[in-house]
Write a protein that binds this DNA or RNA. Structure first.
Length: 861
RNA sequence: GCCCGGGUGGCGGAAUUGGUAGACGCGCCGGAUUCAAAAUCCGGUGGUAGCGAUACCGUGCCGGUUCGAGUCCGGCCCCGGGUACCA
């Protein structure tokens, strides 16, 4: 027997491609280029997950398709290899992170090659390679030169468990994103990057990107631009002024008090003698609160009076100044004018502390809430009375500017990027400290390599692990000869991934991060595919660095990634669960909070659907039906190696693309893999006789007939269109339809099969290569021209029209194609149809709708 | 709370500018092959009624626009993701 043996043919072609460097990126710049990029993986110890091949298969299909369309394709892969897990493993076992990382990379590379991806393996990058991070450090020096990198004593998110600080984005609900450990606030000296400098550009340039709207929106929200005014409030009996930011300057007449954040620099000076103790106590309490506590307590507002008063510049009234932690020191100016009538938070606070409330916007008649935050007519506001909100804003800003007490202003939520970590396994900063002052390392001294150490824990004094390498830390300033200390913080994992897409263009280039002409040819990335979990972090940071590099003249485009697509998560197989306690079944909705609930795992055979719910077969017992995120603890992780072992890489690729739209979250189904495996078997048997292992007898060098051309060209049309639009599931369905049809043909023209094999090749490249060579072609099909479809072959001899009476289909008529557009003829034929006549009998025709090539609708009374 | 997505058979999902809802695959049912099974092949498969032609119902719910709505508009419900005192 000569059955379809995926393992044999896949190994054969993978070796062929590697040996012949089939996917080596072309050096010429004649042809149009296409740069298709995957988000490179962190090579974890657990190996490839079925989620990885999803995006990678999608980009691989595009890469293979574009090559056949005559593009020069850049399709690289690499390793985002710095990171916590290898370091934590090192702390536990003493194994150097480099060793762990190298081992994991070998495994990942093997797994990716086993799936037949058409990467150019000569362009692999590795962020932990000194030849790579040399340029990460180089870019840091550029940031430093431009004043975009600075040190600051900041209250940081310190995670004692991990022994490091975390960026705000890495803290979720007061816990570390990695590991879920508690995070506390702690003032520390840190490196910061001035991403806020680029807030405006990062926001504006989103507009022209072909990115998912939701991702753009997330970045917009993250940057958080708001337009309003800065206003000065003179403090009564003081020289000081309090500057506030507000988006509602039109409500200034309703500002009945002010609030400073506990950390505001004027709190000390303004507090009166009587209030000193109360305020000091309050400040202390606020400082001790962790992020988590702040969020939990956010419902109940607290604050204390400073004893001081400010003067509202609009009406010269004295209003009290309070301190409260519902005002955040790092947003706006850290102080607000409180307008309880128009702001829910201020209303809540005013109610609690019995402060006056004045409405300055007329709420709608049916308005029932407390603070009215909407727009409307201005009231109780002297010269603004009667104006609509937008007009009032303009007028008051004008007035403020004229009187020198305020001006129009734009504020961003975005904060500077906390860029240092107290870790070993990251890029060392190219910085030395001389006499306590930071000094950049000379470019010629790069890379600053990681020193060898044997204990990866932070030191007893709480310094980063690098401080253990004393010989490395203590150095000399080459310029002055003075003793200098190296920076012992390292860069966060995001650093290496901020520019890796540039390194692929010229991975060996040693005069800069990227070679100029290559950059000009290949950039921007035409298609970037990766998870939506990187919507803000990686994608915002990378855009920021890119813009800095643009300003430095290193890159020629303002944006790195032209088109972005997120693949949806693959969930575990569907699970059916019934809940039982003390022998009694429970409703899933009740079982949630209870103890000692027994979960009964069921299979599809045990259940049936009743109305909206699943129940235990033959009973009323409700059953939970849900697909869960794959996780080790749940035991529902699907291992790609096993799928490949059982069905082959082509089946895995094909199944992951056939599951549904790429962007969508979808559950795994082993039965579904079997389905596409059966399809590939049918392809095999269509061409190969399993008895003899030879080409089927009915495969001949004949001219295809009309029907065959029609079926083939329909497949070409559909597959081409669907690949262009990344609708891989329906493209595969079109291939299946072709095979179903072809299976019924008596004779199979070789030319038709050749074309079909080309259509199949981006999806199932191994089987396609095998069929291609067995059909008598000598070269690999990778650079064969993509089939063109011919409209002529798609024409039908007759056209079918559904016939509706009053919008309901009552029959259909077939008319010759040449008469298909003749309204009168087609309608006449329609009226002759038996069932249609039945409905026309005894009625009057009111209207006849004729949509050429589509439908007929006869409206009767 | 706010901002984005999304609700279509038993399941994953198809459906051009509004034009026959359910392509393709899974599952299920029936048949062929087989000593039997697996594999394979053929046929059927939204629900209800009917031997059948056919009819009625059907794309989360309620209403609207239209000759015609899964698709457009208004109001809700549910699920998923993001975000949260951002002045």
């Amino acid at each position: 027997m000569y059955e379809y043996d995926p393992l044999e043919i896949e190994t054969k072609w993978q070796e062929f491609w590697l040996r012949n460097k089939t996917f080596q990126t072309p050096e010429d710049t004649e042809a149009p280029k296409y740069y298709v990029l995957d988000m490179f993986p962190y090579p974890s110890g657990s190996g490839l997950h079925v989620g990885h091949p999803e995006g990678y298969t999608a980009t691989d299909i595009i890469a293979r398709y574009k090559r056949m369309k005559g593009f020069n394709v850049l399709h690289p892969i690499g390793w985002d290899a710095f990171g916590l897990p290898a370091e934590q493993y090192a702390i536990r076992t003493g194994t150097h992170p480099r060793e762990t990382t190298e081992k994991n990379i070998v495994r990942f590379r093997e797994q990716l090659q086993m799936l037949g991806f058409s990467y150019d393996w000569d362009r692999e990058v590795n962020t932990t390679d000194p030849d790579y991070y040399k340029w990460t450090q180089w870019i840091f020096l550029k940031l430093y030169e431009k004043g975009l990198a600075y040190q600051d004593e900041v209250a940081v998110n310190w995670c004692p468990e991990l022994g490091t600080v975390l960026a705000n984005e890495e803290v979720i609900d007061g816990k570390s994103e990695v590991g879920g450990f508690p995070v506390v606030r702690k003032p520390m000296r840190q490196w910061m990057l001035r991403i806020t400098e680029y807030a405006e550009q990062l926001l504006d340039d989103l507009e022209n990107l072909e990115w998912p709207e939701s991702t753009k929106e997330m970045q917009r929200n993250w940057i958080g631009r708001s337009i309003g005014a800065d206003i000065d409030f003179q403090v009564a009996d003081h020289d000081e002024k309090i500057n506030v930011f507000t988006t509602r300057p039109d409500t200034i007449f309703g500002a009945t008090y002010m609030v400073l954040a506990p950390e505001h620099h004027l709190v000390e000076q303004l507090t009166t003698e009587e209030q000193r103790e109360t305020v000091a106590e309050y400040k202390e309490k606020a400082a001790l609160k962790s992020d988590l506590e702040r969020q939990e307590l956010s419902k109940d507002k607290t604050g204390v009076f400073t004893g001081a008063y400010a003067i509202n510049p609009a009406n010269n009234k004295e209003i009290p100044i309070w301190v409260a932690d519902y005002v955040l020191v790092h947003y706006g100016t850290g102080a607000i004018m409180a307008v309880p009538g128009e702001d829910e938070r201020d209303w809540e606070f005013a109610e609690k502390y019995d402060l006056p409330i004045i409405r300055t916007v007329e709420p709608p008649e049916d308005f029932e809430g407390k603070a009215y935050t909407g727009l409307g007519q201005t009231i109780n506001s002297d010269f603004l009375n009667g104006l609509e909100t937008e007009e009032a804003k303009l007028k008051i800003i004008n007035w403020l500017e004229k009187n020198g007490v305020g001006k129009k202003s734009i504020n961003y939520k975005l904060r500077d990027w906390l860029f240092s970590r107290q870790r070993y396994w990251g890029e060392p900063f190219p910085v030395i400290h001389v006499d306590g002052e930071p000094k950049p390392v000379l470019e010629s001294e790069l890379p600053v390599e990681l020193p060898e150490i044997d204990d990866f824990q932070p030191t007893e004094s709480g310094e980063p692990p690098l401080a253990r390498a004393k010989d490395w830390v203590v150095t000399k300033d080459p310029e002055t000869g003075k003793t200098a200390l190296r920076e012992t913080n390292t860069m966060p994992q995001w650093a290496g991934s901020c520019w890796y897409y540039l390194r692929y263009i010229s991975p060996q280039f040693d005069e800069g991060p990227v070679e100029k002409s290559g950059e000009e040819y290949w950039m921007p990335v035409d298609l970037y595919v990766g998870g939506s979990e990187h919507s803000v972090l990686h994608l915002l940071y990378a855009r920021f660095w890119h813009k800095v590099l643009y300003d430095c003249g290193v890159v020629s485009t303002k944006e790195p990634f032209k088109k972005l697509v997120h693949q949806g998560m693959i969930l575990g197989e569907m699970e059916y669960t019934a809940y039982r306690k003390n022998g009694q079944y429970l409703r899933p909705s009740d079982a949630g909070g209870m103890d000692d609930v027994e979960k009964v795992k069921l299979t599809e055979k045990d259940i049936e659907k009743r109305q909206e719910k699943f129940v235990l077969k033959g009973t009323d017992i409700e059953v939970d039906a849900k697909a869960y995120k794959m996780s080790k603890s749940r035991g529902n992780v699907i291992n790609p190696d096993q799928v490949v072992d059982q069905f082959g890489a082509d089946s895995l690729r094909l199944y992951e693309m056939f599951m549904g739209p790429l962007e969508q979250v979808k559950p795994w189904s082993t039965k579904g893999v079997e389905g596409v495996y059966r399809f590939l078997n049918r392809v095999w048997r269509l061409i190969i006789d399993e008895e003899s292992g030879e080409i089927q007898k009915n495969v001949e060098e004949t001219e295809p007939d009309k029907e065959q051309l029609k079926v083939l060209h329909e497949a070409i049309r559909k597959v081409t269109e669907d690949i262009e639009n990344m609708r891989f599931n329906t493209a595969i369905s079109a291939l299946m339809i072709f095979v179903n049809e072809a299976n019924q043909w008596e004779k199979l023209p070789v030319s038709v099969l050749n074309t079909f094999v080309l259509l199949l090749s981006p999806f199932a490249p191994h089987l396609a290569e095998e069929m291609w060579s067995r059909l008598g072609n000598s070269e690999s099909l990778v650079y064969e021209p993509w089939p063109e479809f011919n409209e002529e072959y798609l024409k039908e001899e007759t056209v079918m029209y559904p016939v509706q009476i009053n919008g309901k289909v009552r029959g259909e008529v077939h008319v010759p194609s040449d008469k298909a557009k003749a309204k009168d003829y087609v309608l006449a034929q329609a009226r002759k149809e038996k069932n249609v006549q039945r409905y026309l009998d005894g009625t009057t025709v009111v209207k006849e709708i004729f949509v050429p090539g589509r439908i007929i609708n006869i409206v009767v009374k």
